[in-house]
Design a protein around this nucleic acid. Structure first.
Lengths: 224, 224
DNA sequence: GGCATGCACATTGCATGCACTTTTATTGTA
DNA sequence: TACAATAAAAGTGCATGCAATGTGCATGCC
């Protein structure tokens, strides 16, 4: 096959970029589980490309921390130790705290309004017990905080950390009562941001993540 | 040439790992300047390998943020905008603050002792005006703080951020009086850590970086 | 039966080659 | 001379192939 196929249904960017997105997505959504082996040949045939772009994608995923690589062995979906997992949650709490604190100081009027509106709208989902929808709202909510900090590098770090944690916090909203609790916590964060109380916002965001961390820990170890 | 050479004087790891280290080092030490183009062919012949490992190395450096890449163009040593540079310094200050705060809480007795000893030893370098040696000590000092936090993920983030900032803070200790000021600031951090005053340690470390940031900004823009 | 040894197979690491894209040099035209 | 069109050169993107490293199973020895 001498390079016939070329650009099928696929969307945008080079082959490698597409693969990085696709594989990262599979890891983050749980289609690929921590510990799973990713051999180049299977991936190559699965995506209908040669091993070269696969290798580059895996290298990038390795740098992102989503897969582990060592010489002459297959890449493996990262399976962090419990202490490392804890360190990531702790770091996440710190980062969220920073974002909330900076958001309280720096968000534009529009950003504040959008945050509050979106937050209020989510109450409906809590009452309906719409776990899926609330999870989507939750992602959006936090992304607003990250952007609101108006710091590109912090945004990068927090986004990457979130991606790496995603596989371990999937079932988070299935815990009974978690939805309502999450809403309350969001509420404290939003209130603090609206009154530009940086310290309170940071504190509220920090403990929000701490709590999520506890809830997820159950699943992390149970999943083994 | 059918794969004859193989493993010369070079040290350890796969070809790609060696190249990543080598190129990262050149960027961080300033042998390669921000904005400089890195074409695969030149690098390949320079390191006496084929383009394949070069490409993988560049991809990894791209993920680390040390080089920029876009499809069908050469990799470029990252040249951050002034606002992005500012965001990195700000993030660095936050991270250093976190590390110092956690260090104050978590450092072992040995770590505290080593930190203080090393710090006191550096006074000699200040008096001698030994910029090079003080710079080395400074790196060591900060690394101790990062480790002392006992959080792997924070360590990763702060290490990576420092690497990305390195090209822009090179000449930092050449500014008159900077050595003595740096020592004073370190002193405040160490003192707070020794008395386990987390808040003070965090605060001291935060403003230490802030100040370094101002000093470097001059060079960042002057280098254009 | 348990354990070391060796061989076939699976899989990664890197080199090479061709297609495609971007950049630079060149030529023709107003 | 200025500028557009176009050809040549340079460089990236990916496929393919071979060497080298690892892995699992069979075989033989204790």
């Amino acid at each position: 096959m001498k390079q016939v196929r070329r650009r099928e249904v696929i969307r945008t960017g080079t082959t490698v970029e597409q693969m990085v997105r696709a594989i990262a997505d599979m890891i983050v959504t749980g289609a690929l589980l921590p510990g799973e082996k990713l051999d180049e040949i299977s991936l190559a045939s699965r995506f209908e490309v040669s091993r070269t772009p696969v290798r580059e994608a895996l290298r990038e995923l390795g740098a992102m921390g989503l897969v582990g690589r060592e010489p002459n062995r297959s890449a493996v979906v990262t399976n962090v130790t419990e202490t490392h997992l804890h360190s990531m949650f702790e770091a996440m709490a710190e980062l969220e705290g920073i974002c909330a604190r900076l958001s309280a100081e720096r968000m534009t009027v529009d950003e504040r309004r959008a945050l509050e509106l979106d937050h209020r709208g989510s109450m409906r989902l809590v009452h309906a017990g719409a776990e899926e929808d609330y999870a989507a709202h939750n992602t959006e909510f936090h992304t607003r905080l990250y952007r609101g900090a108006h710091n590109d590098h912090v945004f990068e770090m927090v986004t990457q950390t979130r991606a790496r944690l995603a596989p371990f916090r999937r079932a988070q909203f299935r815990l009974p009562g978690r939805l309502a609790k999450s809403y309350e916590e969001h509420d404290r964060i939003v209130a603090a941001i609206m009154r530009a109380d940086a310290a309170a916002a940071g504190q509220a965001a920090y403990s929000h993540v701490e709590i999520v961390s506890d809830a997820s820990a159950v699943f992390a170890t149970a999943g083994e």
